[in-house]
Design a protein around this nucleic acid. Sequence first.
DNA 1: TACCCGTGGGT
DNA 2: TACCCAAGGGT
Length: 300
Amino acid sequence: MTTSNAPLPLPDLARFHEDVLAWFDDTARDLPWRRDASPWSVMVSEFMLQQTPVSRVLPVYTAWMERWPTPAELAAEPTGEAVRAWGRLGYPRRALRLHAAATAIVERHGGEVPRTRDELLALPGVGDYTAAAIESFAFGGRAVVLDTNVRRVFARVVSGDQLPANAVTAAERQVATALVPIQDAHRWAAATMELGALVCTARSPRCEQCPVAEICRWRAAGFPAYDGPARRAQAWEGTDRQCRGRLMGVLRDAPGPVPRTVLDAVWPDAAQRERCLDGLVADRLVEPVGEDELALPGHA
DNA sequence: TACCCGTGGGT
DNA sequence: TACCCAAGGGT
């Protein structure tokens, strides 16, 4: 971290708001969960967008909303159907959590997505970011929406750093809170996210397209490189995650229960394979069927 | 807190 | 090509 979190001078603050909002009016993507920003639409999209890019979410989201237009319709189906419909979005536990959240919404909230922060946070799979996003995008609330895009934009424009810290800091939250405008808070949230996603990107920022390049402290400082603690690279080859993914892929693509011998064929290390299979069963992503078959939970 | 949890596209 | 990274949450 190179610079302080000193607030932007008031003239810059006003420009920050005005220029980002004007840019958003001109360039916002026409995304289906914006076009129909019902609470359930927003909630489904936010679950899918957790660590997954928009382009990959789009087709799965569309099919999901056609099949399950309300929480009650999702809750009425076996969890395995949700996992199958999740397809290759990754982190399939999110499908389970979305199903569980839908069930809780039916049981505790009469089938309607709740609108208070505490009620949202009590739902499975809803953390600080997702609760704020639903408050903001579905209900027009004045929430502090801090996702990876917003964090990066504020790190650069306000703090002069290339990237934010690994975890949200108190100072960061303070900056974000102070920046939420009195009016148009939900548009501000969407606009700052959009700016981070389209222009102020992690790798190759398009500063020539940026509406606030002239007040950006990172740019003014000459684009100093990130100097915080190293980010641990995500290992992949040979990990349990790869093994679990391979196993889930077989079960998703099969119409019904799969013999263990078929699963044996997709991962050579027997000990690791059994450990991962046990983990998937413990996570309720997979269900044993009889002695030597496995399936997605709830049926076939 | 640090680590676990998938998948695929961009650079 | 080999990384890096993506609208995070749970433990």
